[in-house]
Design a binder for these strands. Structure first.
Length: 471
RNA sequence: GGCUGGAUGGCAGAGUGGUCAUGCAGCGGACUGCAACUCCGUUCACGCCGGUUCGAUUCCGACUCCAGCCUCCA
């Protein structure tokens, strides 16, 4: 089955053709670690995690590289504000990032290079660019990329160099030959953070670290480069200019960019200061609800982070776990068994079409209905349907929790204690209600049920007894 | 202003040249002591104007509006 991927470079959905048969080199721009990750980071992390999991399930050998930018002006400024060494700040933020990733079931990439671990590669690449006149050393000691010398500049985002110049936003800098040039190496004084090198003492500018890390881990030309919605310009445009000038080869075949996360229908940005960190979000919502929410739109569409939409995601996920409730013990199918399934076929058709997770969900919801019907009729295929549902969920990193635990957790974590009702207390009230029901004292039974409902506990009666879940 | 992408039912959100998206919500029914869960049925749709076509929400063009990037940001 052919895999189609929307390529930012061509602005078209294209049939994916790997450089080497069966293999995919994937580089995703990771985090600049000067603060906690926010919900926008979460989207990129979760989207490429789901994509990578899916590709591997289709027998692609994926080499997934996601970098950490751990040296940068924002980091140095923040460290100075905190009056701490910048490596202390980045170490703390990297730990926090890893915690957030684990919570969201984001698997580790195959490698996670850090800018400070690639200083030699960065220096070599800049030296190469200087030697070939793609870069020059300015009077202030900074080294800039000579944008004019790279004729393809702007091919990713279709910008016109002259118009870029007329845009007043380009910062005029006396040291530059041309205001459009950007820094590769920033000169550093002895008492500033920097590395000694043939380029002079300094530190890398933003952009060059990704060119160095990606080409040194995946080769001068690789398959897919991904990132957030604000990266095509200037970051990826500059990466192309640096890398292709340095190697003389095509840098990347497919460019993938996630859509923006909005907050209550407002643009989310650092300057508006309206972003939510992942850890704040996880205080309100179960991590799988957040993951499900992020995957419930196509990865390229804008998505709106709001109370309503998160509640909706929770309800959707609850539908899956309700269906799996009586099948928590079913074993996962092996690959061959799963691939026999017609549901699997529909699911993969959706995913092979530029990773259409929402369409894949539609197939899973239809499977849920079939499963519920089978279970109601006590059909023998119910267990197999449940196993297929879990199998499809696993391809996206979903539905791995114990259904009862998920439903009784009520879509958030750790709220049972603050609710004032322990599981034991709930069970006691349910037993009391059972007694009232047996005695046909329905008024008392309803009173108990309403009491529990007021505390966020929903009861569900069945022939086998009463189950409960939190809203 | 330039460059991208989009406009689908009450909301969210896919997709298709002519028969169903899907989820939530609503309505009717089954189940239930009553509910909840679940199942069955069902209402509600493709921004606006032209064109192509036997037929367009789907293709083409104009228009209007919205979002992202062009400034730190994933």
């Amino acid at each position: 089955m052919t895999l189609k991927i929307y390529n930012t470079l061509t602005r078209k959905k294209e049939t994916f053709r790997p450089i080497r048969e069966g293999e995919i080199g994937l580089y995703v721009c990771g985090i600049t670690v000067y603060d906690y990750c926010h919900i926008g980071h979460a989207r990129v992390l979760v989207a490429f995690d789901a994509i990578t999991r899916y590709l591997r399930s289709q027998d692609w050998q994926v080499n997934y590289v996601r970098n950490i930018t751990d040296i940068d002006d924002k980091i140095l400024n923040r460290a100075a504000e905190n009056n701490e060494d910048y490596t202390k700040l980045t170490a703390r933020m990297i730990n926090a990032m890893h915690e957030d990733e684990r919570a969201l079931a984001v698997l580790e990439p195959d490698s996670e290079p850090r800018a400070t671990g690639h200083i030699d590669n960065i220096i070599n690449m800049i030296q190469n660019l200087v030697d070939n006149h793609y870069a020059y050393r300015a009077d202030n000691g900074d080294i800039y990329y000579r944008v004019k010398r790279f004729p393809d500049y702007g091919k990713l985002t279709n910008i016109n160099l002259d118009e870029l110049l007329s845009g007043a936003r380009v910062e005029p800098d006396e040291a530059k030959e041309d205001p459009r040039d950007f820094a590769l190496w920033k000169a550093a004084a002895e008492d500033e953070t920097g590395w000694d090198s043939p380029l002079g003492r300094g530190r890398p500018g933003w952009h060059i670290e990704c060119s160095a890390m990606s080409t040194s881990t995946l080769g001068e030309t690789f398959d897919i480069h991904g990132g957030g919605p604000d990266l095509p310009f200037p970051h990826h445009e500059n990466e192309i200019a640096q890398s292709e000038a340095a190697t003389g080869k095509t840098f990347v075949h497919y460019w993938m960019h996630a859509g923006a996360v909005r907050v209550d229908d407002e643009k989310m940005s650092k300057s508006l200061n309206n972003f939510f960190t992942i850890r704040e979000v996880l205080k309100k919502y179960h991590p799988e609800v957040v993951r499900f929410f992020l995957l419930s739109s196509h990865y390229r569409s804008p998505i709106n982070y709001s109370e309503d939409n998160l509640i909706e995601a929770r309800q959707g996920l609850e539908r899956f776990y309700q269906a799996l409730r009586d099948f928590s013990d079913v074993a996962l199918l092996n690959d061959d068994e799963l691939k026999q399934s017609s549901w699997y076929k529909r699911f993969t058709e959706a995913m092979n079409d530029d990773f259409n997770t929402r369409e894949a969900f539609a197939a899973m919801y239809d499977l849920v209905r079939e499963l519920n019907t089978a279970a109601r009729e006590q059909r023998s295929d119910a267990r197999h349907l449940a196993a297929q549902l879990k199998g499809l969920g696993a391809l996206l990193g979903l539905l791995d929790a114990d259904p009862e635990t998920f439903l009784q957790g009520g879509g958030t974590l750790g709220q049972s204690a603050s609710d004032g009702l322990s599981e034991q207390q709930i069970e006691i009230l349910i037993t009391e209600r059972e007694a009232a029901k047996t005695a046909k004292d329905y008024a008392r039974a309803d009173e108990l049920r309403e009491q529990l409902q007021g505390l966020g506990v929903i009861l569900e009666d069945s022939r086998e007894g009463t189950r409960w879940r939190r809203e």
